[in-house]
Amino acid sequence: MNLLSIAPTLAQGPMPTEMGGATLFHYLLVSAIMFGLGLIGFVTRRNLIIMFLCTELMFQAAGIALIAFSRFHLNHTGETFVIFVLTVAAAEAALALALVVLLFRRKETLDASSWQDLKG
């Protein structure tokens, strides 16, 4: 409640001191790095499960950005968004594992590059 009363002054300013020296920039940097790592991992790794985990990393990078922005703007929208993102990510995880199992049953491998019949 206290925070809300001073919201107008904080809205576009730096992070409150309770958060240490970290500013919005730091959080965004972490989020961007996570997103980038996820992307790089997705591109370079061949194991389907690892690849899926990389997409999860990218989802959570967005989650971090959302929470940081939520804190920055002093509203709860971003945090609400993250809850939904987590839900969707969970659904995707279930789907991904089911799919990976299905594929493993067919070819006994988790290598993404073993699936390349469709091309051209």
Partner: peptide, 15 residues
């Protein structure tokens, strides 16, 4: 991958 991309975009729009 696509979903992650536009999700990140949405996050930035919100930001």
């Amino acid at each position: 991958l696509g979903a992650a991309t536009f999700l990140y975009g949405f996050a930035l729009i919100y930001g």
